[in-house]
Amino acid sequence: MTLPTLHQLITQGDLDGFTQALQDGADPNQLDSVMGNAPLHIAAQRSETAFVKTLLEHGAFINLQVPKHGVTPLMVAVWHRKPAVVECLLADKYINVEISSHFGLKAQQLIDFGAADDDRFGQQQAEQIRALFEQHHKQQLKQQATMEAFNIVTAASSSDQEKAARLRALSQQQTLNATSPVTSSGNDEHTAVMVAARDGLVASLRQLMDLGGDQQIPDHYMKAIPLHKAAYNGHAAVIELLADYPGFQETLNAQGPNNGYTPLHDAIWHGHLKAAQALIEAGADIELRAYDGTTPLELAKQYQYQEIAELLGSNK
């Protein structure tokens, strides 16, 4: 098996050549053709962190799973008992410790793999790694606790009006536009504004925007902005509300990097006539093409949404 260039440079310990290759345009996420390991999976096996840090600086996907077995770089570092690398990966804001491999185990569940009970050094390494995961968990809880606005809008037991009242009484607003940690919660890297727009919490969203909410901050999963979420879920009232605040024009025709859909595409995708109408009336571009090659009108015809197609046709 011939490894790709970056993989080879890591195995050779050639950091200078490795860094130069990345600067010259080598793909930090290239997979080998046999297992599907990315350079970061190989780097995570080493005891030092230089290759890992360099890859992350050049855009390596920290949570990339090997196609064969679903192992992430963090899992590799834990499995190979590399505390320094585990610490480095856990310090990254995008690390996701909740990912499961194809054989059903998360990174933390691999701590005790390999080291025998009488392996003193191995057990010491395992304890180091276990402590790092505990520290990471505590830091996430601490971060989450400070996000007052986010915690208010995600409270399942409160109505929209109750949430809006609590938002008006916020004790501090420093974390108003903070993004939630990556925990596989469904709210990863969401702001309070994102959650309110997604869930159609009009009263809460109005209060957030009056306090200085930012509607241009994307989420973790799709790098979508609040307007995408509102359109996707058919919340026409949310769209109309956001149109009255700064940042709306900057996001009105934003194309998501996952599929190239604009908010208008997202509204049409699921047949939300009123949401599509709100976006069109706000001046959405009806000619932009998504990655699948469709304009909004073509997408409406593809999914046989006749009313939306007629609406778009009359606005051409």
Results as ranks from 00 to 15, higher is better:
residue 126 A to H: 07
residue 194 M to L: 12
residue 188 D to P: 06
residue 54 T to N: 03
residue 29 N to P: 06
residue 210 D to T: 14
residue 309 A to E: 00
residue 196 A to V: 09
residue 133 F to V: 09
residue 24 D to T: 09
residue 310 E to Q: 13
residue 223 K to N: 13
residue 267 A to F: 12
residue 144 Q to V: 06
residue 256 G to A: 13
residue 314 S to A: 05
residue 60 A to P: 07
residue 214 D to I: 03
residue 31 L to W: 02
residue 103 F to V: 06
residue 58 H to M: 08
residue 52 V to F: 08
residue 250 E to I: 12
residue 258 N to T: 11
residue 25 G to E: 01
residue 251 T to F: 07
residue 243 A to N: 14
residue 92 D to Q: 15
residue 263 P to Y: 00
residue 57 E to T: 02
residue 238 V to C: 13
residue 162 E to P: 13
residue 116 A to N: 11
residue 82 K to Q: 14
residue 176 L to Y: 12
residue 88 C to G: 04
residue 107 A to S: 14
residue 60 A to L: 01
residue 138 K to Y: 07
residue 170 L to P: 09
residue 93 K to C: 00
residue 22 L to W: 03
residue 308 I to Y: 06
residue 61 F to W: 12
residue 214 D to N: 15
residue 129 I to H: 02
residue 269 W to F: 15
residue 31 L to D: 00
residue 140 Q to R: 11
residue 125 Q to C: 15
residue 105 L to G: 03
residue 49 T to K: 12
residue 234 G to D: 06
residue 183 T to W: 04
residue 127 E to V: 11
residue 24 D to G: 05
residue 296 P to N: 06
residue 93 K to Q: 03
residue 83 P to F: 04
residue 218 P to W: 04
residue 123 Q to T: 04
residue 250 E to C: 09
residue 160 D to Y: 03
residue 102 H to R: 14
residue 286 I to M: 10
residue 83 P to M: 01
residue 72 T to A: 01
residue 201 L to S: 11
residue 227 L to H: 11
residue 59 G to N: 11
residue 104 G to V: 06
residue 11 T to L: 13
residue 261 Y to I: 02
residue 23 Q to R: 15
residue 170 L to K: 13
residue 142 K to W: 07
residue 37 N to Q: 14
residue 38 A to W: 02
residue 256 G to D: 12
residue 140 Q to S: 05
residue 48 E to Y: 02
residue 156 A to P: 05
residue 236 A to V: 04
residue 124 Q to L: 10
residue 24 D to K: 14
residue 260 G to F: 00
residue 185 S to D: 11
residue 172 Q to P: 07
residue 291 Y to M: 05
